[in-house]
Amino acid sequence: MIDQLSTLAAIAESSPTKQPSALENAIAVLFLLAFGGFMLRRWAINNGQASEALARAKNLDHNERDKIEREILDAAYRAKNQSMRINELAISIGEHQRLVLHLVRPMVKWGLLEALPLADGTPDVDLNEYSKVAISAAGDKRLRERDPVVKKTYHGDYFHVGDNSTGVNKSRVVNSHIGTYQERYDGETVAALKELERVVRESGNDDAIETLDGFLSEARSDKPSRARMRLLFSGVQQLVPTISGMTDLVAKVTAIFS
């Protein structure tokens, strides 16, 4: 057996190596040229699309820009953990990632979106299409402000038609829906929600009151989003700093979305 293997090896070594023919060389060259041309054409198309998207982003009028920014916020809000990569946002709303990146950068600067840290924990200061952003409390507030469906819901929830109608800023949402809150939460939690509402409304901060209304609406919804409640409550705390010092209240309220 060993002798047979040795013989076969000797024959293989003595066999002349077949050189590619001129035709085979020509076919290989043509293939490389075709592949190179394809890649060059693809690069040119992608570069052209990116340039067109950037030019469009810079020339959006106010209404067009507002519409796309709302779509970005809505896509981020609906995503898992209310965060997405910029290229995923682009796919989600059907826009070129260069256009989305151009709009996301100022949205992060204005606080509508938050740039999440890189994998190693360092801040992502140079946003690109692979950067991950999350909707902020300010972004959620803007999304609700500009959504006519939500506005209609808020009017149905917070305005009472009749001779003794009370405006949203003077009403007490928890008291108005006390049965719903009592079905979902224990007495101490409902009391904490009442106290939270009292403190926020007495602060006179309209942004805080509106953010609180969104939080309370989510808290009594059929399928409340814990992520959204966490986001909105954080926004309320930032707008009314005294709340953070009310440790018992904060503990009871945060327990419902922890």
Results as ranks from 00 to 15, higher is better:
E24M: 09
H96A: 07
R85P: 02
N25K: 10
L32N: 08
N46D: 09
I27T: 11
N59A: 15
A75G: 04
A76R: 01
A34D: 11
F38E: 08
S21V: 00
S51D: 13
I93M: 11
M39Y: 00
A50L: 13
E69P: 07
E69Y: 04
V29F: 14
E69D: 08
A79V: 09
L89V: 13
L30I: 10
E64S: 12
R41W: 04
A34L: 13
A76F: 01
R42L: 01
D74Y: 01
E52N: 09
D66P: 01
H102A: 05
N47A: 06
Q49D: 08
R42S: 03
H62L: 06
G37F: 01
L40S: 04
L54A: 04
D66R: 00
E95P: 06
L101T: 02
I86G: 10
K67T: 14
N59R: 13
I91A: 15
L30T: 12
M39T: 03
W43H: 09
A55S: 08
W43C: 09
I45S: 05
A90Q: 05
R85Q: 07
A79C: 06
H102Q: 09
A90H: 02
E88D: 15
R42A: 03
Q97C: 03
L30P: 08
R42Y: 03
I68H: 11
A79S: 13
E95N: 09
E69W: 02
S83E: 11
K80S: 15
N59Q: 10
R70N: 12
F31M: 11
K67H: 15
L60Y: 06
I91N: 15
F38R: 12
I91S: 15
N25R: 10
A90V: 12
N81H: 14
N87R: 14
L101Y: 01
V100L: 01
